[in-house]
């Protein structure tokens, strides 16, 4: 303290003070200022407002202007979070063509910006799961082996052993996962869209979800044995045995039995 006191009026003090102040202001500004727009950032008030307009124009006929849903038609969206919107709208499932338990994936009706605005609006209605970060869904950081163990215990019964999809009751089905983006896979687990149950972060940890993504991505390199035949199990194998195997062999027997010209 004495040293400091002696130097109290050092002649460079004002300069240091000015530099320090500048640094402080810049730092605070960096923290306060909006970073470059990404899907994972807090939405601005304008986004929420734009999202509300989009919602009123495209979603409110089923979900209601207040987004509280209608019994038997559409669920309330309070508390479903941005992740749910990003999944449902981003995969083209919403808006739905007709109300029903199976929402079909199709080309998204909105651009990335509009989806972000809708997500921002719905997220503003009540706390819910947010859109995962790029790191959270980066399969290359995951452990595919653990992913395999989690996938086959929690996912394979509906989506097939390597993501080929499968049937549910009454015409519903679990879609194939070959084309699904990692973000959408993550969001689906988090939010439990349509028939799918919810796999919250306590059930399958964020790391576990990333492992599952890693496992699914490892399946996209093809099958070691050749063509994968849809990876739907012995039924397609049987069909090919008859069509190609028996078909070709019987064709050859006809040639063997025919008289040469």
């Amino acid at each position: 303290m004495q040293t400091l006191a002696r130097q109290r009026y050092h002649r460079l003090t004002p300069l240091l003070l000015v530099l320090g102040l500048l640094a402080l202001i810049t730092g605070v500004a960096t923290i306060i200022a909006p970073p470059p727009a990404t899907a994972n950032t807090e939405a601005s008030a304008q986004d929420v407002e734009a999202g509300q307009k989009l919602f009123a124009a495209n979603c409110a006929s089923c979900h209601g202007l207040d987004a509280r849903g209608q019994a038997g038609v559409a669920p309330s969206l309070h508390g479903v979070g941005a992740a749910s919107v990003d999944f449902q709208v981003g995969t083209g499932r919403m808006p739905m063509q007709a109300s029903g338990p199976q929402a079909m994936a199709k080309a998204p009706q909105f651009g990335e910006k509009e989806i972000a605005q809708l997500a921002a609006y719905v997220a503003s209605l009540g706390a819910g799961p947010s859109i995962p970060t790029a790191e959270q869904v980066d399969g290359s950081l995951g452990d595919a082996t653990n992913g395999m163990l989690l996938y086959r215990n929690n996912c394979a019964m509906c989506h097939g052993s390597v993501g080929g999809g499968g049937a549910l009751t009454e015409g519903k089905f679990a879609p194939g996962l070959w084309e699904t983006t990692p973000t959408h896979i993550y969001e689906a687990m988090l939010t439990g869209p349509q028939s799918m149950p919810v796999f919250n972060e306590a059930n399958i940890t964020p790391e576990g979800k990333r492992d599952i993504i890693a496992y699914l991505e490892a399946q996209r390199g093809g099958s070691p044995g050749g063509l994968g035949l849809g990876a739907i199990g012995p039924v397609s194998e049987g069909l090919w045995a008859w069509l190609i195997g028996i078909g070709l062999i019987v064709g050859i027997t006809v040639w063997v039995g025919a008289r040469s010209s």
Binding site: R152, N153, S161, A241, W242, I244
Partner: peptide, 26 residues
């Protein structure tokens, strides 16, 4: 050229998991 019975997809036996398309050979 055609994969058959890719057991590496199904994983080692465990009585709990099951996958869609659980069927016997034709």
């Amino acid at each position: 050229v055609l994969t058959i019975n890719p057991v590496w997809n199904y994983g080692p036996y465990d009585p709990s998991p099951v996958s869609a398309g659980t069927q016997p050979d034709w």
